[in-house]
C-alpha cells in the first residue's frame, strides 16, 4: 500500500510521522516558503515551488510529515472557498475507523 495517502487532520500527525499523507484544510497564514493550514488544528506546511496557496481558501495537500510534525508539500490542489469542513472531519474519522476499505491494515 505504498501508493495510499491516508487522509488526516492535525491530531493524527504524530501517528503518521515520516509518511505521505493527504490533508484538506484552510490556509490561515502565508509566510513565503511556509504556511499554516487549519485542519482540526494548526499544521505548519513547508511549500515547494509549484504550490500556489491562497489565503482563506481550502487546499488539499499531499505531503510528507516531518520530524517536527510539519508537512512538506509534494502536491497541492486549491479547493476554493466552498468546502464543508465538518464533512472533511467526518471523512477523516470514517477512514480511520473503517480503514479496511481505505488503507491497508499495516498503516
Amino acid at each position: 500500500m505504498s501508493e495510499a495517502t491516508p487522509r488526516i487532520t492535525a491530531p493524527y500527525l504524530e501517528t503518521f510521522s515520516h509518511q505521505t499523507v493527504r490533508i484538506l484544510g484552510k490556509v490561515v497564514q502565508l509566510r513565503g516558503e511556509q504556511a499554516t493550514v487549519d485542519a482540526g488544528g494548526q499544521i505548519a506546511v513547508l511549500l515547494n515551488r509549484d504550490s500556489h496557496l491562497t489565503l482563506n481558501h481550502a487546499v488539499e495537500i499531499v505531503g510528507k510529515v516531518q520530524n517536527d510534525l510539519s508537512v512538506k508539500v509534494l502536491a497541492s490542489t486549491d479547493f476554493g472557498t466552498n468546502i464543508d469542513f465538518a464533512a472533511v472531519e467526518a471523512v477523516v474519522d470514517a477512514t480511520h475507523r473503517y480503514k479496511e476499505i481505505f488503507y491497508g491494515d499495516d498503516s
Binding site: N82, V88, A90, V91
Partner: peptide, 18 residues
Amino acid sequence: NDYNEIQCHLLEATVVHL
C-alpha cells in the same frame, strides 16, 4: 465541480460498505 463531492463519495462508500 464541487469538491464536497469527494467527501460525500467517501462517506457514501463507507455507509454502503457497512
